[in-house]
Design a protein around this nucleic acid. Structure first.
Lengths: 303, 303
DNA sequence: AGAGGTTACGGGCAGCGTAAGGATC
DNA sequence: GATCCTTACGCTGCCCGTAACCTCT
């Protein structure tokens, strides 16, 4: 039978290059995907997909079909939004976020999503930005909030939020809160995001530019772990204060003003793959931005 | 659920202005149509059709939906033909023909259709042209072969075949085969197609133009009956000789050459409503024309 | 052995048709 | 009462998920 569901399945198999990936994307089993493709192929009387050991590629008939299928799906999506169907904003969204986001505005975002789009189920994954990037491009995630734009064709990046970075230390170190220089900092290990991240590299560059060579940076994937290490006096942390507002309030940690080492903001973008049907993702991205603007006005999650 | 089937049902309900008509068109029951529309409406969260006592009209949401639905169905139809799906030429075609066609090339057409498009089921109805026209416009027939073009918007008329009209008489009348005039004819009743048809009116005009006033035309909807009446010596028939080739061969009837009364050919057209999905009807119309051309070459059904 | 697609099989549910119900003329 | 859409209900068959199977690296 030629149905929209079968066509959608076909399109996702081609986009993601595999039955299993499409199954995950469509929240179903590999078996169901296999059956839908078989159904579609029998309806059209042609083999649509070349099953190769390591990849699935469309046959010439499949490539002919693709634009028709995509336009039909786009029309479906368009009409749902033009008519204003109630389930236009329904579905599973697999969202991947950096740990920084998980520690700051994620809770608020999910809470507001629940009330505004109760029909949208969110699966949330927390990982470092490069892994989020790979998962997005692999099709395992629908939308990510990494600390860097994903510079790929067909990926939309929406500038989301920037958090200022700060130097943070434990009172145990007995460092003055102002008048500290980068040279002073370098006596301690610097604890921050892992090696593959922007802040880590910014820090290293900063030390090198200041002709400081004997510095140590401890990369760590867990922000909580960083905070705990810092509290324990292991070193000075470089991280956004927003993440550790509790520790700052309880004065387990405090921010040091380092005059000659202004760290650039840690900027996050919302990224998602541009497919013909991005209405829901567009809406969620816009929703997140609106939420942020509202939060800034009412001082909820940003000073 | 938003499915192609439900959209197709919606489109036909709007086109034909009723659930029952759409059900007939789609070879299903009124109940099924009602359920599909209800399903579509719940999927879109809006009432799409205004159920009025005597007619069903789309609501504003329905009118918004219509072009999307139609384009999706057109894409479906297009892709089936581009890909060359085996069931692209499958379905029920309700064909209405004039009795003249039923007596001449219909058998041949159906035979050839069976071998070329075995997946197409044909329901055939024989009626006079005006009834065929009404049935086509009502949506009760998909394609008709009437003796006149259907001059309506959105109806395609393909010139199909013309049969010469002739004067036919029984040997019992003992009329000469040549040199007969219209005046001679007028002594007998003329038996032909019914009053509402083109030949009947042509005949009447012909008599009036010749200033003959005391003529009698017996209209009859059954060609067999006309032939039998003519054989029985009741009058002279005006009809295409092709229809009565058997009687002519057996010399139950013969053609009279009336010098001053050349009857115009009886021309038939193939007519069908232009909907977004006319691939099958286009193909059948072309098939009929091809069949005719072939028949002319091999002298099967035309001298 | 493991990854990935196919096939077999049982169960749930969607959608159909029959038939009764209701509204409007 | 006739026409036309809706609703109730039982049933068929489709489609899904589990799991075994196959194939290729």
């Amino acid at each position: 039978m030629l149905t929209l569901k079968n066509l959608e399945t076909f399109v996702w198999v081609v986009r993601l290059g595999g039955f299993g990936h499409a199954a995950k994307r469509l929240n179903t089993t590999q078996s169901a995907v296999s059956q839908r493709i078989a159904l579609l192929e029998s309806a059209l009387g042609a083999t649509l997909l070349e099953r190769q050991p390591r990849q699935v590629l469309p046959t010439s008939k499949g490539r002919e079909l693709l634009p028709y299928a995509e336009q039909m799906l786009r029309l479906q999506s368009d009409l749902l939004h033009v008519i204003g169907a109630p389930d236009a904003f329904r579905g599973h969204i697999r969202l991947g976020v950096s740990e920084t986001i998980a520690h700051t505005c994620l809770l608020h975002l999910v809470q507001k999503m629940q009330t505004t789009y109760p029909q949208v189920v969110m699966d949330i994954e927390v990982d470092i930005s490069t892994n989020l990037r790979d998962a997005l491009l692999r099709g395992d995630l629908d939308m990510i909030i990494p600390a860097m734009p994903i510079l790929e064709p067909n990926v939309r990046n929406v500038d989301f939020v920037g958090y200022p970075m700060a130097w943070v230390a434990s009172p145990a170190l007995e460092l003055p809160r102002t008048g500290v220089t980068l040279k002073d900092i370098a006596h301690y290990p610097v604890i921050t995001y892992p090696k593959s991240t922007r802040p880590y590299q910014d820090l290293r560059d900063m030390f090198l530019r200041a002709d400081i060579t004997d510095f140590k940076i401890y990369g760590n994937t867990s922000l909580s772990a960083i905070a705990r290490m810092c509290s324990g006096g292991i070193g000075i942390a470089a991280m956004p204060p927003e993440v550790i507002s509790r520790e700052l309030n309880q004065e387990e940690l405090y921010v040091i003003d380092v005059v000659d080492a202004i760290l650039p903001d840690l900027r996050f973008t919302i990224s998602y793959v541009l497919t013909p049907d991005t209405h829901l993702l567009d809406a969620i991205a816009q929703f997140a931005l609106d939420m942020l603007a509202e939060a800034e006005n009412s001082q909820v999650s940003k000073p």
